[in-house]
Design a protein around this nucleic acid. Structure first.
Length: 757
DNA sequence: GTTCTAGAAC
DNA sequence: GTTCTAGAAC
């Protein structure tokens, strides 16, 4: 019985318990954020956790990443989160806003107090610490407030509360303090002083404008007026186009009718479309490729939601020719169920090649449901777009690629002579190829909808990413330069498909060779099964490659020393036929030397093969000899010998470096991580791998930007100075994975592996 | 690899 | 205001 009751009550509570909340405080230093948090937490009915960047790292200042991580874990435990950092700028808070969605609702509480109040509090608080006194405090606060961007609902907040004085703050504290597990606060904007009026004005202006278009609009105008109170709360509607507003608010007045009547009038063009990049796209694969529409509409809505979570201020419009389109209605219903922002995503029934002249819609980018040969014909959208784009579009397409594979897309800038550009203002066409389910067309997937949905989803994300990259590049003529910076909430992969296409066509040219494509690029996978001739070709290409472009001009210094050590007396400490040993010009520790191989053509670890093992053994032995010498002078020194996975300078060199990392030259994250992540390949491991596999593993350069962690106790630190100050006092032993010959020190006159520290 | 510097963060 | 980092240039 008891068990049953438990089950019932847990079911009920699951149903009723609101989502956890993420409350993002927004305010200058001294605005009272911490006090707010403490006041809420001290008597709250829910469980709250305050996340403060100043104290997140064991009481010390930490990173934004640590705050995010901490917030994620708190949410997973069902706790409510208060983000206590300034968050005055959109970018500073955007990562935290993204915590919202299925797992949490995100609110903002804006402590919008006069600067002088913040300054005087700040001086009182920090004066005795000597950090931010008088004029300095004022400068900091004023500077920060200059950059202040008040939060808006369209950033992803479901509720925003503005506090301008202590009473407002008290009310906000109470709202959260008394919020029980089963309660929720209303959505919208509260306490904002002047914006509501502006929104109202904007709407009135719009209504007047609409009126001039005639009777068709009367109903919808009335409807808008009715809803305007609701709209006023959402300040995201400050700058919107009237049609989008109607779409959102037109429920119950015959949606389809409204859409078509309104959208097919050229009423929007002179209103507010100008600065928002807009992509119009047809449904991919559901026409001639016979993809199931129900499944396709799920994929579309999913892809759109995903896109909106990454990108700010861009609009998408799904277009189909027929007002009775099943796809349009399916997508509309599903988008609405999924709460997709209907201001940013809408549907349109009409000709995709006449969006402006036929519908007044200014879409700077349109997508084409293409065929794999990227050729005109075949009917449907493809024929229509190629025909509207003219010969110029066909040629421009050919310039980009010859073919396209299912699930990908390519961008084609529309030539200015094309009617699509001149008449419709379309600056780019993105050709997309979706999966084919039609047995009468090539590459039919039959009924494999697992694969089909995957490919269709890839097609849409490729399309949307490419659209994003157009706006990011500032290439879009529909987008003013000032909005470029505001466009992205986060980095979006750019043009993956186009470079893929290019590389298909230009395999031998090395499309990315101007990038940091070092010699390790493909050698790991360089096939041993290549024929002799091919291998020779590859070799010469590799040599060419590194000589030509992959090593920067500075990167040949070690090579010069290895080949002509006699010319570099100052740095060289040992010369033999095989090796040159030098002091590192910029030592990253008390003792830091390089053992250079003198073999020509052996530039980096990725070049090393089994036959080089004797050379590496000699280098290791030479390194050990120097360790012994150094240790005899300073027995406290402990060394590691190893190679960088991807060196910055050519000519294979072994680092022999003491583990104190006590050096003014160690200044960057990259410096630290190059010696303290798996990017550093211990010499003994490399030798072992050569014996076993014939080559050594190369670790990713991404490791160089990992967070900074102490090599002893593994604690994380926000920056190099903090890390350095920590390691100078950290008493923890070296981790066990270094304790099998990787760490060396001197003992009884000879260097030995450290067995126990 | 370093130096220089703009801009992020507080 | 200072501190710190990351990216560009070399």
């Amino acid at each position: 019985m008891a068990e049953e009751a438990d089950t019932v009550s847990s079911l009920m509570s699951e149903d009723k318990v609101g989502k956890p909340l993420v409350v993002i405080l927004v305010g200058a230093p001294g605005s009272g954020k911490s006090t707010f948090c403490n006041d809420v937490i001290s008597a709250a009915r829910r469980t709250w956790i305050r996340i403060c960047q100043d104290t997140i790292a064991n009481g010390k200042a930490g990173t934004k990443g640590q705050c995010l991580q901490s917030a994620i874990s708190a949410l997973q435990e069902g706790k409510n989160v208060l983000i206590d950092r300034c968050n005055l700028e959109l970018e500073q808070r955007s990562e935290f806003v993204k915590l919202g969605g299925a797992r949490a609702d995100v609110h903002a509480v804006v402590l919008d107090l006069p600067a002088r109040v913040c300054i005087s509090r700040l001086v009182k608080r920090t004066g005795h610490e000597g950090n931010l006194q008088g004029g300095k405090a004022a400068a900091v606060v004023n500077r920060m407030l200059q950059k202040k961007a008040l939060p808006k609902l369209n950033e992803g907040f479901s509720r925003i509360m503005f506090c301008q004085n202590d009473d407002d703050i008290k009310a906000a504290v109470n709202a959260y303090k008394f919020l029980g597990l089963f309660d929720s606060l209303p959505s919208g904007v509260f306490g904002q002083r002047s914006a509501d009026a502006k929104v109202q004005q904007g709407i009135m202006k719009f209504l007047k404008k609409v009126d001039t278009y005639g009777n068709d609009f009367q109903n919808s105008a009335a409807k808008l007026e009715y809803d305007s109170q609701d709209l006023a709360v959402k300040n995201e509607y400050k700058e919107i186009n009237p049609c989008a507003m109607v779409i959102e608010k037109g429920n119950g007045v015959g949606q389809d009718e409204l859409d078509n009547d309104l959208l097919q009038k050229p009423c929007v063009s002179d209103f507010q479309w100008n600065d928002v990049p807009t992509l119009a796209f047809p449904s991919i694969s559901t026409s001639d490729f016979q993809f199931n529409m129900d499944k396709a509409s799920d994929v579309i809505v999913e892809a759109v939601a995903d896109f909106f979570s990454k990108v700010d201020k861009a609009k998408l419009i799904l277009v189909d020719l027929s007002p009775k389109s099943k796809m349009l209605s399916l997508v509309k219903v599903k988008a609405s169920k999924k709460n997709v922002n209907t201001y940013r995503f809408s549907t349109y029934a009409g000709d995709i090649t006449r969006l402006y002249t036929g519908g007044g819609l200014h879409c700077n980018v349109i997508a084409n449901a293409s065929n794999w040969r990227l050729k005109p014909g075949g009917g449907g959208v493809n024929t229509a777009i190629f025909s509207a784009g003219g010969k110029a579009l066909e040629i421009a397409t050919k310039e980009q690629a010859d073919t396209i594979s299912p699930g990908s897309s390519i961008i084609v800038p529309v030539p200015t002579i094309s009617p699509l550009y001149q008449r419709e203002g379309v600056t780019h066409v993105i050709h997309v190829l979706g999966p084919n389910m039609n047995p009468q067309r090539p590459n039919c997937l039959k009924d494999d909808y697992v694969k089909g949905c995957k490919v269709l989803s890839e097609a849409y994300s490729s399309l949307f990413n490419n659209f994003a990259s157009i706006a990011l590049s500032g290439d879009s003529k529909a987008e003013s330069s000032k909005s470029v910076g505001m466009f992205f909430e986060s980095v979006v992969e750019t043009q993956p498909a186009i470079s893929e296409q290019k590389s298909k066509r230009e395999v031998s040219i090395g499309y990315d060779s101007n990038k940091k494509s070092k010699c390790n690029e493909d050698l790991g996978s360089l096939s041993q099964s290549l024929g002799f001739l091919e291998e020779e070709e590859q070799k010469s290409e590799r040599t060419d490659h590194s000589a030509k472009s992959s090593w920067g001009s500075w990167a040949h210094a070690l090579h010069q020393v290895a080949m002509h050590p006699e010319k570099h007396n100052r740095d060289v400490i040992e010369i033999s036929d095989d090796l040159v040993v030098i002091n590192d010009l910029y030592p990253k520790a008390k003792k830091h030397i390089l053992v250079l191989s003198r073999l020509p053509g052996l530039d980096c670890l990725a070049d090393v093969r089994r036959e080089h093992l004797p050379m590496l053994q000699k280098m290791h032995a030479a390194g050990l000899k120097w360790v012994e010498k150094f240790s005899s002078h300073d027995p406290a020194l402990v060394f590691r010998l190893g190679y960088h996975s991807v060196p910055s300078m050519r000519q294979l060199h072994l680092h022999v470096i003491s583990q104190d990392f006590d050096s003014t030259h160690l200044r960057k994250k990259k410096h630290w991580n190059s010696f303290n992540t798996p990017f550093f390949r211990d010499s003994i491991d490399v030798q072992e791998e050569l014996k076993m596999n014939g080559l050594a593993a190369i670790e990713d350069e991404k490791l160089l930007s990992s967070e900074l962690r102490c090599q002893h106790c593994k604690s994380a630190h926000p920056n190099i100075p903090r890390l350095k100050s920590h390691i100078s006092t950290c008493k923890a032993p070296f981790p066990s994975h270094l304790q099998n010959g990787r760490l060396v020190f001197a003992s009884s006159g000879s260097s030995e592996a450290v067995s126990d520290l």
